[in-house]
Every structure is written in structure tokens, then in C-alpha cells.
């Protein structure tokens, strides 16, 4: 895959900003955290399904893995995939426990923290050079 550009000069639309060949370390860290947690949730979630329990964790885990991979490649799509997971989590969580706020803690707090971190990463990701996976 491409390219050997060291120094991509900004074009007119991104005046003064450098293009990055890969995401910043913060984004990479978040990406790996997502992959790691995603694997745990997916593995445990599949086991829970086998035991007759909720499908949420396996699905959310898979989504988190994809999010993490996309992040590591500096893809803005990571955000869209994750927004989908987050919205799904919100719907599922409300369906399970409604307005029981203490019961919402394990369901919504950590996913929302990840969402905020993702949003913080957005400016960095947008500067990553587009390239094929």
C-alpha cells in the first residue's frame, strides 16, 4: 500500500495542518483498549448466549472490536460504528431497567466514557491520510 509521503503539505482546505500517516498515540491506545474490551465482551458474551442469557454483550463486543480496528487505521467510520453501538446500548439498557439509575451505571457509564474519548480523538483522526485498509 501506498506511500511514502513524508510531508504532505496541506491543501487549501486544511490550511496549515499537517496530514498524518497514522493516528496519534492516544487514538491508537483507545483503539487497542476497544479491541481488548471488545474481545472480553465478545468471548464472555458468546458464553452467556450458550448459557441461555442476553445477546447484548456478544453483539456489543463485536462492535467494539470493529471500532478499535477502525480507530487503529485512523478511520472516521470508527465513530459511526461506535455511535451505532452506543445508541443500541441506550435502547437495550432502557428496555432492561428503564429509569433505575443505579442499574444504568454498569450499562451506560463506561460506554459513554468511551464515546466521549472517541469524540476527543476525532480531530486527530480527521488528519490521518485516507488510505485503503
Amino acid at each position: 500500500m501506498a506511500t511514502t509521503t513524508f510531508d504532505t503539505r496541506s491543501d487549501s482546505s486544511a490550511a496549515g495542518e499537517e496530514r498524518l500517516s497514522r493516528p496519534g498515540w492516544g487514538v491508537l491506545l483507545l483503539g487497542w483498549v476497544c479491541v481488548l474490551f471488545g474481545l472480553v465482551l465478545f468471548g464472555g458474551g458468546v458464553y452467556l448466549i450458550v448459557l441461555g442469557g442476553s445477546w447484548y454483550y456478544a453483539i456489543a463486543g463485536a462492535g467494539l472490536i470493529v471500532t478499535g480496528i477502525l480507530l487503529n487505521h485512523g478511520k472516521v467510520a470508527a465513530l459511526w460504528i461506535y455511535l451505532l453501538i452506543w445508541a443500541g446500548t441506550l435502547v437495550w439498557s432502557w428496555w432492561e431497567v428503564g429509569a433505575d439509575w443505579w442499574a444504568q451505571v454498569p450499562r451506560m457509564v463506561a460506554p459513554t466514557v468511551i464515546l466521549l474519548l472517541l469524540l476527543l480523538c476525532l480531530p486527530n483522526i480527521r488528519r490521518v491520510q485516507r488510505r485503503p485498509l
Binding site: 474490551f37 465482551l41 464472555g44 454498569p106 457509564v109 463506561a110 460506554p111
Partner: peptide, 8 residues
């Protein structure tokens, strides 16, 4: 739990 992981 505190997070989806320990809740799982």
C-alpha cells in the same frame, strides 16, 4: 457491576 464487563 461498574462496567459491562463485570456485569457480564
Amino acid at each position: 457491576g461498574f462496567t459491562p464487563i463485570d456485569q457480564l
